[in-house]
């Protein structure tokens, strides 16, 4: 495009956005740390970055943090896995068969509008505080993005492309591999990105309630103990996991479906 040799841009120009972001984070942490030079520090009420960092290092070194995360991961994997299977299957049927969607859309809308989290106490009382209760909460919360997105993805399949492939002698298999899957998959992955956040809510709800282990329990317990440095360390760990999961999926979307860039 350019008809002149573009002169090399300086490093700061090119990475301006990232640098400004890092700068802002640094300022935020420094200000947080520094504010207690003026304001009296009460470690039962607040914490500060150096203490949180120490607590985080200790929690990792002792293996406590990893163990809590591993315990929470089990119901997450079950609940989320079930949500993928059930949600995608249901969504595809609803997208493909108009009648099914007529029949199920109102119910889905009602379910989706209800704060299903409100059923958590019931689920916990019924299934107990173990893996199954948490997995069910996670499933209920994270299944809807898969249903809605798979449905939208199937509806968005371009009938013209189906005709193109058919007219060139494509088989049913070609139809699925070359048109339908590539059209629907981006929607499902985008749904997964939303579902991850809702699944994490499910873990926390389940473990705040009545668990005896897991990362949500750890946060609640450190709160009860007024151990704010360790509580912040756990919150930070969840933040990192949430960002890695969502941004990771976003990155995978861009890498796997480059034709959707800019949408």
């Amino acid at each position: 495009m350019l008809d002149e040799a573009a002169p090399r841009q300086s490093f700061t120009d090119k990475h301006r956005k990232v640098l400004l972001g890092l700068l802002a984070v640094a300022i935020f942490l420094a200000a947080w740390q520094a504010v207690f030079l003026v304001v009296p520090f009460n470690k039962l009420f607040v914490s500060k970055p150096d203490l949180i960092w120490d607590a985080l290092v200790k929690l990792i070194a002792s293996g406590d943090l990893i163990r809590d995360l591993a315990i929470s991961a089990v119901p997450f994997v079950y609940g989320f896995g079930a949500a993928v299977v059930v949600g995608v299957a249901l969504g595809i049927v609803m997208g493909w068969r108009e009648r099914v969607s007529y029949a199920l859309d109102p119910i889905m809308t009602i379910f989706y509008a209800s704060p299903l989290v409100a059923l958590a106490p019931l689920v916990i009382v019924f299934f107990g505080v173990g893996v199954s209760g948490k997995a069910i909460i996670i499933f209920v919360l994270s299944v809807f993005p898969f249903i809605f997105n798979a449905q939208a993805g199937v509806r968005a399949v371009d009938r013209l492309l189906i005709n193109v492939v058919r007219s060139m002698g494509g088989t049913e298999r070609d139809l699925y591999l070359k048109v339908i899957v590539p059209s629907v998959l981006p929607y499902i992955v985008a749904g997964a990105r939303i579902a991850v956040g809702r699944g994490l809510i499910g873990i926390l709800v389940g473990e705040f309630f009545a668990a005896s282990e897991g990362i949500g329990y750890a946060i609640a317990r450190f709160g009860d103990l007024f151990a704010l440095d360790r509580m912040f360390a756990c919150i930070f760990a969840i933040m990192v996991i949430a960002v890695v999961l969502t941004e990771g999926i976003r990155w995978a979307e861009r890498a796997a479906f480059p034709w959707r860039a800019g949408q």
Partner: peptide, 8 residues
Amino acid sequence: PPNRGPVR
């Protein structure tokens, strides 16, 4: 333009 070379 930002992030690109100049265009005459």
